[in-house]
Computed example of a mutant assay.
Amino acid sequence: MNDNLSDTLLQQIRSCTNLVHRLIHSEHHMKAQDARHTVGRAQGIVLKILAEKDGLTQTEITEKLDIRPSSLGELVVKLEKNGYVERRQNENDKRVINVFLTEKGRELEKEFINPRQKAAESWCAGLSEEDKTQLSELLNKLILSMEDVLSKNEEGFSEREMPFGAGFPDMDSEGFSHHDLMGRRRGGPRGEWRNGFR
Rank of each mutant, 00 (worst) to 15 (best):
A32T: 14
G188E: 02
V99Q: 05
E60N: 05
L144R: 12
G187C: 05
N90P: 00
D131S: 07
L138R: 14
G187T: 02
I13M: 11
L135Y: 06
Q12W: 02
I13T: 06
V76P: 01
M182L: 14
G55S: 05
H21W: 11
F176C: 13
T102Y: 05
M146V: 07
R87S: 09
G83N: 08
K48Y: 05
L75C: 02
F157M: 11
R194D: 08
T57P: 00
I13F: 07
S151D: 08
I67N: 04
Q89A: 05
P189Y: 06
A42W: 00
E129Q: 14
L23S: 09
L138S: 12
E159W: 04
E155F: 07
H178I: 11
S128G: 12
N92T: 11
N18W: 11
K94S: 08
K132D: 03
E111D: 08
Q117Y: 06
D170G: 15
E60K: 13
L144G: 02
K141G: 03
S158R: 15
L144C: 08
R184F: 02
L108G: 03
D148Y: 08
P163I: 04
L138W: 03
G105T: 02
C16I: 07
D148P: 00
N92I: 04
N4A: 14
G83C: 05
R186K: 14
M171P: 00
F112Y: 13
N195H: 09
A51M: 11
R41G: 00
V149P: 01
K132A: 10
S177K: 15
S71W: 05
Q89R: 13
S158A: 14
N82M: 07
E154I: 12
T57N: 01
S158N: 09
E155Y: 06
R87F: 01
L150Y: 06
K110A: 10
E174M: 13
Y84C: 05
I97H: 07
R22P: 00
N114E: 12
L138H: 10
L9V: 06
H179R: 15
D172F: 14
P169S: 06
L135H: 03
G55L: 05
E174Q: 15
H25W: 07
P163R: 13
A125N: 14
D7L: 13
Q43I: 00
E174V: 12
Q33K: 15
G55K: 07
L139I: 11
R88C: 03
L139G: 02
V149D: 02
K94E: 06
R36S: 13
Q12A: 07
F164H: 13
N195D: 14
I45L: 10
L23I: 12
W123G: 03
R22V: 08
L135M: 11
L138Q: 12
L23D: 05
I67H: 04
K141I: 09
D54Y: 04
N140L: 13
M162W: 01
W193L: 14
I45M: 09
R87K: 15
L19H: 09
E121N: 15
G175S: 10
D131M: 07
K94C: 01
H28V: 03
F100P: 02
A51P: 00
K94R: 13
D3N: 13
L9T: 04
M146D: 08
K132N: 03
R41W: 01
R68E: 08
C124I: 10
K64A: 11
S177M: 13
N153Q: 14
R185G: 01
S177N: 12
E109N: 13
Q12I: 10
K81V: 00
D3Y: 09
